[in-house]
C-alpha cells in the first residue's frame, strides 16, 4: 500500500479514510503493521492518527440496546402472522357432511379454478367442524381462518365484491389478507367484518382470535388493529379499537374493559391442540373440552368447579390435561367414552 498520500492528512482525513477506519475497528496483523509504519514515517502525523483512533474507539464504547429478552416473544408474533399454520391438512369442504376420504384428497388436489367456480354458483358458503376437529378455511381473497372444533363459518355468495363479511359461531383464528394500500382511502371491499351475533369485528388485515360461545364473545388481537362495534336498536352503535395484545369480552350488549395479554400468541395454542391455562379454574378448563371436543362433564359437587390450579399449565392433548388436573387438585376423574365424571 502506498502511504505517501497520508503526508498531508489531518485528523478529519484519517477519520474519513476507509482503510484507516477498518484498521481501527477490525485490526489485522497486517493493517496494524502498516499503520505503525505510517506513524513512524510521518512523525508529525502521530497526533492526528492518535486522535482519530481515540475518537473511533471512544465512540464505539457506547451502550448497545439489544432488546434480547424480547427476541423470542416478537418472533412468536411474526410467526402467528405469517408462519406456517400447523393445523391439519387443508380441506375445502363445501357441505357440512364430511366427504369420504378419497373425495377429500381429490378436493384438495383439484385445481382451485374449479373450486372457485363452485363458490360463485353456490348460495351461502358454510364451513363446519365436528367436535375435536380443527380445519383451515382458505377464502377467495387469501384470508385464512383456522376453525376450532364445534365451530362454523358462513359467508354470502359473490363474496368479496362489495365487502368481505363472515359470520362465526364457536372459535376461529383469523389471518386476514390485507388488501388496502392507502389507509386514508378505504374501499368497501378492503374492509373485512366478522359478525358474532350483534357484535361486528372490523379489520383491514391482521391476525386475531375470536371465541363466540355461550352468548359471550372473546376477542384477542395478535397483530394489527381491529374495531369492534355493537349494533343496538335504539341507541347509536358503540365501538372499541383494539391494539396488539388487547383482549376483551363481550356479553349482555357490553364490551368489557380492555385487558393487555402478556403473551397474545397463546390465544392460538389450540391450533396445536395445546392447552395453556394460567391460574385456571377446574370448571373453566373442562368447559373447553365440552365446547370444542364434545365431552359431557358431570360434577359430583358443583363446588369442585371452583378449584384452581395456581400458576401455569401447558399440556398437549385431552388425556394429559385430565391427568394434570387430577394430580394437582387431588380429584378423581373418570372417563367413559365422551363422558367425564369429576369427584
Amino acid at each position: 500500500m502506498d502511504s505517501s498520500r497520508y503526508a498531508s492528512f489531518t485528523t478529519k482525513d484519517f477519520l474519513a479514510d476507509d482503510d484507516f477506519v477498518s484498521a481501527v475497528i477490525s485490526p489485522t496483523d497486517a493493517s496494524t503493521r502498516f499503520w505503525k509504519q505510517v506513524a513512524e514515517h510521518y512523525p508529525d502525523k502521530q497526533e492526528a492518527i492518535a486522535q482519530a483512533t481515540t475518537l473511533i474507539r471512544g465512540y464505539r464504547a457506547q451502550d448497545t440496546f439489544t432488546n434480547a429478552s424480547r427476541q423470542a416473544e416478537l418472533w412468536k408474533r411474526i410467526e402467528a402472522e405469517v408462519g406456517p399454520v400447523e393445523a391439519q391438512p387443508k380441506v375445502l369442504q363445501l357441505r357440512p357432511r364430511p366427504l369420504p376420504a378419497l373425495l377429500r384428497i381429490a378436493a384438495a388436489v383439484v385445481p382451485l379454478g374449479l373450486g372457485s367456480l363452485f363458490f360463485w354458483y353456490n348460495q351461502d358458503q358454510h364451513f363446519e367442524t365436528a367436535f375435536g376437529e380443527i380445519k383451515t378455511v382458505e377464502m377467495p381473497d387469501g384470508t385464512q381462518v383456522l376453525l376450532n372444533g364445534n365451530s362454523s363459518l358462513t359467508y354470502e355468495r359473490g363474496w368479496g365484491k362489495n365487502s368481505r363479511e363472515v359470520w362465526l359461531k364457536g372459535e376461529g383464528f383469523f389471518r386476514v389478507a390485507h388488501l388496502n394500500k392507502d389507509s386514508t382511502h378505504i374501499k368497501p371491499g378492503e374492509r373485512f367484518v366478522v359478525h358474532c351475533n350483534d357484535l361486528a369485528i372490523e379489520v383491514l388485515g391482521t391476525t386475531f382470535n375470536v371465541n363466540n360461545r355461550h352468548a359471550k364473545v372473546d376477542v384477542g388481537l395478535v397483530t394489527g388493529k381491529i374495531k369492534l362495534t355493537v349494533a343496538a336498536a335504539n341507541k347509536p352503535a358503540s365501538s372499541v379499537v383494539l391494539a396488539p395484545g388487547d383482549y376483551v369480552e363481550y356479553a349482555a350488549k357490553t364490551i368489557s374493559p380492555k385487558k393487555k395479554l402478556a403473551h397474545p400468541e397463546t390465544l392460538v395454542t389450540w391450533c396445536k391442540r395445546q392447552f395453556i391455562f394460567k391460574d385456571g379454574k377446574l370448571g373453566d378448563m373442562l368447559k373447553v373440552l365440552e365446547d370444542t371436543y364434545g365431552y359431557q362433564i358431570k360434577y359430583s359437587k358443583t363446588a369442585v368447579q371452583e378449584l384452581k390450579i395456581e400458576g401455569e399449565i401447558n399440556v398437549t392433548g385431552v388425556e394429559a390435561l385430565l391427568e394434570t388436573i387430577s394430580a394437582s387438585l387431588h380429584v378423581s376423574i373418570y372417563q367413559n367414552g365422551k363422558q367425564i365424571i369429576v369427584n
Partner: peptide, 25 residues
C-alpha cells in the same frame, strides 16, 4: 455521503482542541 460525513467530522475535530493524546498504534 462524503459531504455529510465531512461536515460531521468538522465539528467532531473540536473534541481535540486542548487535549494531548499519545500514539495508539
Amino acid at each position: 455521503t462524503y459531504k455529510l460525513l465531512y461536515k460531521a467530522l468538522h465539528s467532531v475535530e473540536s473534541v481535540f482542541k486542548d487535549s494531548n493524546i499519545s500514539n495508539s498504534f
